[in-house]
């Protein structure tokens, strides 16, 4: 048995907890959160500068050894996502891109069709593409064929902290995808993350639940422990309660 690692593109990670930089009360908390959570991949977004209020550089809060995962948030079409991805790569020096195309402003559901189109283009350009999707098995297989490095199905709508509402759909992805399945969005508690890992997810991405906790650093640690616990439970082949009674008429009597 080799070390239990997560492979994304040409990079290998020992942590299965991806984090995000959104919604922190103070960006200074990010480095402490990263240290406590052990997270090796963190998302950032690209925005037009705000000419009025000068903000500090988010990249200064992220240590060199953590892999940047720029997202394409703000994109409403595949074309826009591709454009943002190219800029992000040139500006950050990383090939990693989380494709996030959202055309629904109310629930912030990812647009699977545009996401597939963007993945097809960016994978050909050498990006390590991580598409954020609604868990849809045929789509996930198309993304896989298109060269996605992983698929990132949502557990629940972004920022809702409602947990694994899409569990049975994610289970199909886990069962049938060859690329890693990273549950992204909606995980509000460490127990949600543990449940995702127990069912065989390869990793989880948590942002809001950590960033908006009373103590993001401690919550980062809590998620790290939950992800590791869930992963170990999965690897150990966890049991299930049996409510099965043995039927009365034997089926194998003919063999005796």
């Amino acid at each position: 048995m080799t070390d239990d690692t997560l492979q994304l593109g040409n990079k290998t990670f020992t942590s299965r907890l991806l984090t995000g930089t959104g919604k922190f009360a103070d960006n200074a908390l990010i480095s402490g959160m990263l240290e406590a959570s052990g997270s090796q991949i963190i998302t950032v977004a690209l925005r037009r500068i705000d000419q009025q209020s000068k903000t500090d550089n988010i990249l200064d809060s992220i240590p060199q050894n953590v892999t940047l995962l720029p997202n394409t948030s703000g994109a409403r079409t595949a074309e826009q996502a591709v454009r943002i991805a190219r800029i992000a790569r040139a500006a950050s020096g990383t090939n990693f891109i989380k494709i996030e195309v959202i055309t629904d402003a109310r629930y912030l559901m990812p647009d699977n069709q545009e996401t597939l189109a963007a993945t097809e283009i960016l994978a050909k350009e050498g990006f390590i593409v991580l598409p954020y999707i609604l868990p849809d098995l045929p789509l996930a297989k198309r993304l896989e064929s298109a060269g996605a490095a992983a698929v990132m199905p949502l557990g629940a709508p972004i920022g809702t902290n409602r947990g694994l509402e899409t569990k049975p759909l994610i289970a199909m992805l886990i069962e049938n995808c060859r690329v890693p399945v990273i549950v992204d969005a909606g995980l509000g508690l460490p127990s949600h993350a543990a449940a995702a890992m127990e069912m065989g997810a390869d990793a989880v991405l948590v942002n809001t639940a950590i960033a908006t906790a009373g103590d993001p650093v401690t919550m980062g640690k809590a998620f790290e422990l939950a992800v590791r616990a869930g992963r170990k439970a999965y690897l150990s082949g966890g049991g299930q309660c049996s409510d099965q009674a043995v039927a009365s008429s034997p089926l194998t009597g003919f063999l005796n």
Binding site: G20, T21, K23, A45, R47, T55, N71, A91, S92
Partner: peptide
């Protein structure tokens, strides 16, 4: 001209 910077995002 587009003037951009990296910001917090999930």
């Amino acid at each position: 001209l587009e003037l951009l910077n990296f910001v917090g995002g999930g």
